[in-house]
Write a protein that binds this DNA or RNA. Structure first.
Lengths: 196, 196
DNA sequence: GTCTATAAGACGATAGAC
DNA sequence: GTCTATCGTCTTATAGAC
C-alpha cells in the first residue's frame, strides 16, 4: 500500500493538465485555434494565465499535446493501408478511427490556423489521405478506380462525421454496417466487380 | 457614347474592392479568418490599412461579402432539394455546386473562427445539409436509407473536394461521371433498389 | 482614394511574491 | 501550484492631411 500510492501533488498536476486540455479542445473546435485566446481557456477554468503557463510553455504546445494522439492514430491507419488489409477492413478501420477521433478531427482537419501553427506535424495528413485512397484503388488502378476510391473514402470518413453530428455523438451498429456497405458500393463498379 | 461610358472613379473603386476580396479569400483559406490580420491583407496589396477601411467598414464585413454568394448558392441547392428533382439530378447538383464554390467552401466549411464570427448567417448551412440528406432519403425513409443518404451526400460533396485537390482544381468529365455513379450506388442498397 | 500617425485594447508570455 | 502585475507586441479601427 505504501509503494502503490501515488504522491498527491503529482495527481493534482496531471488533473489540472487534463482539465486545461479538455477545455482547450472544446474551445478550439468551437472558435478555432487562432480564435481562442489563452485567457479564454483560463477564465473557463477559473484560474490565471500564469497558472496555465506552469503546465504548458506555450499555446502551441497545448495544440501539440492535443494532436499527438490523433496524428499517431492516423499514422496507424496509413500503415494498415500499406499492409495486406482488404478494402472492406480498411474502410471499416477508417470509420472506427473517425469515431474515436471525432472531436479532434474538428480541430486537426477543419482549422487552417491550427495547421499553419503546426507545420512540422500536420503535412502528414495529406500523405495519409493519399496512402489510404491509393490502397483502396489497388495495384495498377485505372483512372475510374482512383475516382471511386476517393468517393468511398469520403463516404466512410465524412459520412461517419455527419452521422455522429446527426445522432448526437454516437454511432449505432446499424450506422456502421450501412455506412460500410455504402462505401463499398461506391468503391466497386457494377461492370467491373474487381474482387479484393 | 456619352451615356454608356462609366465614370472611371467608380471602376477603380470596384476593382480595388475585388482585389481586397481576392487576397482575403486566399489568406483566410490558408491561415483561417482569425489567423489573418487586416495588415496581412493590405501588405500583400501594397496599400495601407486605412485604405482598406475606406472600402470595408470592418474585417467581419470582408468575410460577409465573401460568403454572400456561397450562402445563396447553397440556399438554391436546398430549394432544389425541396422540389421535384430526382436523386441523380440532386447529387449532380451537389457536385456542380461544390466545384463552383470550392475555394470558398474551404472558408465557410472549414474554419470554426469564421463560423463563430458570422453566427447570424452560417447556422443555415446545417439546415441545408439536413434538407439535402432528407431529400436524398425520400419520403418515409427507414433508418438504413437515412444512413445511405448521408453516405451518398458525403461521397458527392467531399469526394468532389478531394478530387479537386488531387487534380489541381479541375474536375474532368470522367471525374464527374464516376463520382456521380459512386454516390448513386452508395445511396441505393442492392436488396432494396428503391426506384426514384 | 490613399496616406501617416495613433488611439485603445487584446494578445502571448514572464517576473516575482506567496 | 497559483496568484497579481506587467512587459512588449500585435490587433482592429479611426483622425486628419493630401
Amino acid at each position: 500500500m505504501a509503494k502503490t500510492a501515488e504522491p498527491p501533488e503529482r495527481r493534482e498536476k496531471q488533473d489540472t493538465r487534463r482539465a486545461i486540455l479538455d477545455i482547450a479542445q472544446e474551445l478550439f473546435a468551437a472558435q478555432g485555434y487562432a480564435g481562442t485566446s489563452v485567457a479564454d481557456i483560463t477564465s473557463r477554468l477559473g484560474m490565471s494565465k500564469a497558472a496555465l503557463y506552469y503546465h504548458f510553455s506555450s499555446k502551441t504546445e497545448i495544440l501539440r499535446a492535443l494532436l499527438q494522439e490523433p496524428i499517431a492514430a492516423y499514422a496507424r491507419l496509413a500503415e494498415d493501408a500499406a499492409g495486406p488489409l482488404g478494402t472492406r477492413e480498411l474502410l471499416a478501420s477508417v470509420i472506427d478511427t473517425t469515431v474515436d477521433l471525432r472531436a479532434l478531427i474538428d480541430v486537426i482537419g477543419n482549422d487552417p490556423s491550427a495547421q499553419s501553427a503546426l507545420q512540422d506535424l500536420i503535412p502528414r495528413s495529406r500523405e495519409i489521405n493519399e496512402a489510404i485512397t491509393a490502397a483502396l484503388a489497388g495495384p495498377q488502378p485505372d483512372p475510374a478506380r482512383i475516382i471511386r476510391a476517393h468517393a468511398a473514402y469520403a463516404a466512410a470518413k465524412n459520412g461517419t462525421l455527419a452521422l455522429l453530428a446527426a445522432h448526437g455523438g454516437r454511432l449505432s451498429r446499424l450506422d456502421r454496417t450501412e455506412l460500410l456497405a455504402a462505401a463499398e458500393r461506391a468503391l466497386t463498379s457494377t461492370d467491373s466487380p474487381s474482387a479484393s
